[in-house]
C-alpha cells in the first residue's frame, strides 16, 4: 500500500520488541495493544501482526491489491473512495481504492490493520518502529508521503462473512470493543480510573503521598509522547528525594519525577530508570491511557498484584471470545 499522506505521526507497530530489555532495547510496539489485536482479528490476522499506528489524525493510503482492512482505536470519519466506513469492522478494499482517515474525533491513536499484516522485515523478532534506535518498521522511522508498505500473505481459513458477523456482535455488545476498565464521570467528562499495583518503590513515599496519588485528578500535558504520558496534578512528595538506584522499567510504570509529577511510561519507554516508581498501571488499562489527549484527565486506583493478574486474564479471554466468533460458525 502507498502512503499518500502520513498524518502527524504514523508508523508501523506490532506487539513490541520484547525479550531484549537486558541489552537496553526499548519494547516499542502499539501503545493501545487491545485496539491492534481487535483490528488484526477482524481482518484475519494473528493478534500480533504489524499495522499502522496513527496519532491525532489518520493517514491517507492507496491500496495496490484487493484486501481487507479494519480501523480500530481512535474515532474518526474514515472514507473509502469518498464513502464513510464503520470502525471496528472488516472492510473489503479493491485494488486502487483510497482510504482517507482524517482527524480523530475522540481518542489519540488509531490503527489501520490490513489482511496479511504490514510485511516489513522483522528486527529482533519484531516489526515495530523504534525511532530512537532507527530500527524496525520502514527504515526505523515514521511514515512519509510516497512510502510503499508491503502487505503479507493472508492466513488461510478466513471467512469475511464471519468477521462481519463478529463486528455486528460488537455493535450489540460495545463493551467488547475495549478492555473492561473503570471510569468516573465529572461534568460530562469520562475519566478513566487507571488501576495500578503500588510499587515497586511505593515505600519511597509517605502514606499521605500515596493517598494524594490515588485520589488526585491528573491532566495529560502536551509534552507527552510514545515514551510516556506526562501528567500534571497534585504533587506527590517523596520521603528523601525521588532518585533511586536505576532499575528495570515496564510499560505502565509510573515514575514520580523530581517535581513530584507522575510520568506513565508507554511503549517507547527506556529499559531502566532512576526515578522512584510509585505504582504500575495494569496492561488492560494502558489502552485507555494511550488514548488520552493533552488536557484530558485520568486518576489512579490501587489494586493488588493478584487482582492485576486476574484482570489481565479477563482481557485475554475477551479477545479469545472475539477470535472464536471469527474462526467458527
Amino acid at each position: 500500500m502507498n502512503i499518500l499522506f502520513p498524518g502527524p505521526l504514523s508508523a508501523v507497530q506490532d506487539m513490541g520488541r520484547t525479550g531484549h530489555a537486558a541489552q537496553g532495547y526499548p519494547e516499542c510496539g502499539a501503545c493501545d495493544k487491545y485496539a491492534l489485536a481487535l483490528g488484526n482479528l477482524l481482518c484475519g490476522n494473528p493478534e500480533t501482526a504489524a499495522a499502522i499506528e496513527m496519532t491525532l489524525a489518520g493517514a491517507t493510503v492507496q491500496f495496490d491489491q484487493d484486501t481487507v482492512i479494519a480501523l480500530t482505536g481512535a474515532a474518526c470519519d474514515a472514507k473509502l473512495d469518498g464513502q464513510s466506513i464503520p470502525l471496528n469492522a472488516p472492510m473489503r478494499v479493491p485494488a486502487g481504492a483510497t482510504l482517507e482517515t482524517g482527524m480523530f474525533t475522540a481518542g489519540l491513536r488509531g490503527y489501520l490493520c490490513v489482511q496479511g499484516g504490514v510485511d516489513v522485515a522483522p528486527v529482533l523478532g519484531s516489526r515495530s518502529t523504534d525511532q530512537k534506535c532507527r530500527i524496525g518498521g520502514l527504515e526505523g522511522r515514521a511514515l512519509r508521503k510516497g512510502d510503499h508498505l508491503p502487505i503479507g500473505k493472508p492466513a488461510p481459513g478466513y471467512a469475511f462473512s464471519r468477521a462481519a458477523h463478529a463486528a455486528k456482535v460488537l455493535l450489540d455488545k460495545p463493551w467488547l470493543m475495549r478492555p473492561r476498565t473503570a471510569h468516573a464521570y465529572l461534568g460530562g467528562q469520562v475519566i478513566p480510573l487507571l488501576r495500578a499495583v503500588p510499587g515497586p518503590q511505593d515505600d519511597a513515599f509517605p502514606s499521605e503521598s500515596l493517598r494524594t496519588f490515588f485520589s488526585g485528578l491528573y491532566a495529560v500535558t502536551p509534552d507527552s509522547n510514545r515514551m510516556g504520558v506526562k501528567l500534571s496534578g497534585p504533587a506527590v512528595a517523596s520521603k528523601n528525594g525521588s532518585d533511586i538506584l536505576s532499575d528495570g522499567i515496564v510499560e505502565g510504570s509510573v515514575q514520580i519525577s523530581a517535581n513530584g509529577q507522575p510520568i506513565l511510561m508507554l511503549a517507547d519507554h527506556q529499559t531502566t530508570g532512576g526515578y522512584a516508581k510509585i505504582a504500575t498501571v495494569i496492561a488492560p488499562d494502558l489502552s485507555a491511557a494511550a488514548q488520552l489527549r493533552p488536557g484530558e484527565l485520568a486518576a489512579f486506583r490501587p489494586i493488588t498484584a493478584q487482582q492485576a493478574v486476574r484482570l489481565s486474564r479477563e482481557t485475554a479471554q475477551q479477545l479469545r471470545y472475539i477470535k472464536e466468533l471469527i474462526d467458527h460458525d
Partner: peptide
C-alpha cells in the same frame, strides 16, 4: 517467565500473566 532485566542492585523478572502469577 518471559525475560529478566538486571540492574545495579535488583533483577526485574517479567512473566506472562496468562501462564504465571505474582505469588
Amino acid at each position: 517467565i518471559t525475560e529478566t532485566v538486571p540492574a545495579f542492585a535488583s533483577l526485574l523478572v517479567r512473566y506472562d500473566p496468562l501462564r504465571a502469577d505474582y505469588d
